[in-house]
């Protein structure tokens, strides 16, 4: 999650976070979750699952914002997200050059 400027209510902003769980052997490697994850948390693995399909790997777990899109777009019921504790934004979440908007 990135902000283009420091939010005015920075102390109240909370970034939701989710833990992605993948049922590897139920995946058929369609790639919908990898393609449509808004935070690009997932990537196709080079390994095969038991059925011979490539399955998604979690490459940036920290970026997951618990939007559940992977869960709802997966045709195989092979991926789901468990809600985790939200976190406050840190300086790395604000784009460089931001923070002095309006001045």
């Amino acid at each position: 999650m990135t902000y283009w400027r420091v939010p005015l209510d920075l102390d109240q902003v909370e970034i939701p976070h989710g833990n992605i769980q993948i049922i590897v052997n139920q995946c058929k490697g369609c790639g919908f979750c990898v393609e449509y994850c808004p935070q690009n948390v997932l990537a196709m693995s080079t390994d095969f699952n038991r059925k011979g399909y490539h399955y998604p790997n979690i490459i940036k777990q920290d970026l997951c914002v618990n939007c559940n899109l992977c869960e709802i777009i997966c045709p195989e019921f092979a991926i789901f997200v468990i809600e985790d504790k939200p976190r406050h934004p840190n300086p790395g979440d604000i784009l460089k050059g931001g923070g002095n908007h309006g001045s």
């Binding site: 490697g29 369609c30 919908f32 869960e71 709802i72 777009i73 997966c74 045709p75 195989e76 019921f77």
Partner: peptide, 23 residues
């Protein structure tokens, strides 16, 4: 909501019916 004992389902990889079932 699912009869998981019948899974994996017969729909092809990248078929959209599973997605519609999720919806």
């Amino acid at each position: 909501y699912l009869r998981t004992e019948r899974f994996p389902h017969i729909w092809c990889a990248t078929c959209g019916i599973g997605t519609i079932l999720t919806a």
